[in-house]
């Protein structure tokens, strides 16, 4: 029997970031010590890739292709291999010296060009935010550049097919349920899933798969619209915040400690009466 195969392409945007776990501050110069920090997949992007793979499994009757994309230096290919090991079908590395120093606007410009090249991406999944840049702006800016809807903080995809999806987004104090037409872009929060560990087969595939590198020329990007040159914002100063060192330990028996704490809360106007 003839069965029409429906193709659904899902792009997942991910970024390699320094694992902040080990960031230390040099107490003498009050500057950051970078040494020994591992690069990792931006934590939220692991949820993004996992969700894409879950959609692929959910829609097993259709042909779903999950493509991991990152813009970064050559070594970012590591995280793309990692995404292959947990189920992505293919990956693309956007890398060029000209892309360096991009702010969120220039980043979304570059990624938008890549996504347009992929043709007919139905869904783009991003992480809620990166742990280095920490802006969460790439998603909505990218969606705007592609002229598609964006929904942030998605905590569950209730229904999805090629043309539509029903999702729940988590706001500070409520859940909102939306239906949107595809193509669309979403960003995901930690609550959406628990990322799997790589399978043996995945690991094998990750080792051997070829990852194409797209540069500015391939993307037909003007040097002035990408990287630092294409950014509207510019970092003019970078410094480390004053770290508190003046902790006052409240000593004594538990009774005395609590009494002292009560006094402090009173001084802070949190307690009335005696």
């Amino acid at each position: 029997m003839y069965r029409q195969v429906i193709q659904i392409k899902i792009a997942v945007c991910m970024k390699q970031v320094p694992g902040t776990m080990e960031i230390k501050i040099d107490p003498e110069t009050n500057t950051l010590i970078r040494e020994g920090i591992e690069n990792i997949i931006n934590p939220f992007d692991s949820y993004a890739i996992e969700e894409a793979v879950r959609i692929k499994e959910r829609l097993a009757d259709e042909e779903v292709e999950v493509i991991a994309i990152t813009m970064g230096p050559p070594q970012s290919a590591d995280i793309l291999r990692e995404s292959i090991s947990v189920g992505a079908d293919s990956a693309i590395l956007l890398s060029d010296r000209a892309f360096a120093g991009a702010d969120t606007w220039a980043t979304s410009t570059t990624i938008a060009k890549a996504i347009n090249k992929l043709e007919d991406c139905r869904l783009i999944i991003l992480g809620k935010q990166t742990v280095d840049g920490d802006t969460g702006q790439v998603g909505p800016e990218l969606a705007q550049r592609l002229n598609i809807p964006f929904i942030g903080y998605v905590s569950s995809i209730l229904e999805i097919n090629r043309s539509k999806m029903k999702i729940k987004r988590l706001m500070e104090d409520r859940y909102e349920t939306f239906e949107i037409n595809l193509p669309a872009a979403i960003s995901v929060v930690k609550d959406i899933n628990i990322p799997r560990v790589p399978s043996l087969r995945g690991k094998m595939k990750a080792k051997t798969i070829e990852i194409p590198v797209w540069d500015a020329k391939k993307l037909e990007a003007d040097e002035n619209e990408v990287g630092l040159a294409g950014s509207y914002t510019r970092v003019v100063k970078i410094f480390t915040p004053q770290i508190k060192h003046d902790t006052r330990m409240i000593e004594g028996t538990a009774d005395e400690q609590v009494e002292e704490l009560h006094k402090i809360l009173k001084e802070l106007n949190l307690v009335s009466g005696s």
Binding site: T20, L32, V131, D134, I238, T240, P241
Partner: peptide
């Protein structure tokens, strides 16, 4: 604004 989970502060301008 803080970046790197508040480990650094960056001052940014729009050009």
């Amino acid at each position: 604004r803080p970046t790197f989970g508040g480990n650094i502060l960056a001052t940014i301008v729009t050009r």
